[in-house]
Design a protein around this nucleic acid. Sequence first.
DNA 1: GAAAGTTTGTGAAATCGCTCACTAACTCCG
DNA 2: CGGAGTTAGTGAGCGATTTCACAAACTTTC
Lengths: 213, 213
Amino acid sequence: MQSYGHIPEATVARLPIYLRALVDLASTGASTISSEELAELSGVNAPKLRKDLSYLGTYGTRGVGYDIDYLRFEVSSALGLGNTWPVVVCGFGNLGRALANHTGFTQRGFPILAAIDTDPTKIGHTFDGVPVHAPGEMPAVVTGHGIAIGVICTPVGASQGAADRLVAAGVRSILSFSPIVLTVPDDVDLRSVDLSTQLQILGFHLQESADDE
Amino acid sequence: MQSYGHIPEATVARLPIYLRALVDLASTGASTISSEELAELSGVNAPKLRKDLSYLGTYGTRGVGYDIDYLRFEVSSALGLGNTWPVVVCGFGNLGRALANHTGFTQRGFPILAAIDTDPTKIGHTFDGVPVHAPGEMPAVVTGHGIAIGVICTPVGASQGAADRLVAAGVRSILSFSPIVLTVPDDVDLRSVDLSTQLQILGFHLQESADDE
DNA sequence: GAAAGTTTGTGAAATCGCTCACTAACTCCG
DNA sequence: CGGAGTTAGTGAGCGATTTCACAAACTTTC
């Protein structure tokens, strides 16, 4: 397999954006694209795009641009797509079900194969094709489905417990929607998305502009 | 009102985390806390916490630490909480309803006062206390409720249209859950949270560690 | 009241990420 | 085939962010 030198985190975070633009472009039938145009579609400037892609390798042709299919394949490979990483959702409330309903995850190699919830009326049933298990079944679920990623959508009070059970069952990649800071071992890759934090950042800027008047 | 010098964006993004830790601490009855402990609770190191807080002012006492209630008030003020910023949700599917159900937003000063959806069976009805309107009513909804923030939860194909309608109606702060790059005027503050991007970043690191073996 | 211990605030250095200008390499046209 | 035009790759400079060490200011102890 192709091996990359160190790719900056900031670049990694933008690769999915480039990839989506490339997939859209491929469906229009275009065959090549310049860094200028791809940058425009991705909401970044052209030198940044070129620098980002240069971390992956030399895939463009000067005077021409990038071959869309080729670049798509390379970005996709860099991101490790083509692999499939099964996902378990912890907490099958509104948000958990919204994720399960979202077909895009499976398409991108992140099938949601199981859910964990404490609600006895849900356990043992299947919603949107996702079977719901009790928290105690976590180890069996992880082993049985080869789960690589856990997503935490529980109420805030249950989120640390869910993280602990994921870690104990061997999951090393966690995406949390909990608003609290979760404690996990160093070798666990934890990403956190807090929706009210995002609103509060918008609120900060709103206040700033209000102060200027 | 207190006016701050320029606060770095990276610091602003962490203030909500500190605030939540402070609110939790206050409910335990503690009165002061050291930067070391607050940093631990917030998942950052102590010097970074102190530097962040120093942008807001000098609120600690050397040899003692920070007064929890006082610091909470100051961080809250810096973030512009105490103000209320009404929110409209565009697209009232699974994700939109998950947000509407989430009581934490109203508590933090971001009440969801209205939703916009194209589904005729939803328009005119109220779900979880949120009335659903047709897209054409956007200007009246924004003006009538004094909407400050729009949240986009529509299917991907409708997200740019929703952004355009928000902007046309005068909304200048947008939080998007759409996976595509939205185009808005420069004076609009747009934050974007793409859930599958987060999974793809986890996937990248999973592949990296798999390659090492 | 002085010395020892604790903890904040902050300048300086190091790191990281972004921008820009320019070279290298390709295509197109006559 | 040569010159004009286009576009990727990249080193150097710049700005933002993080880290670190230490002085300043407080409390506690004797």
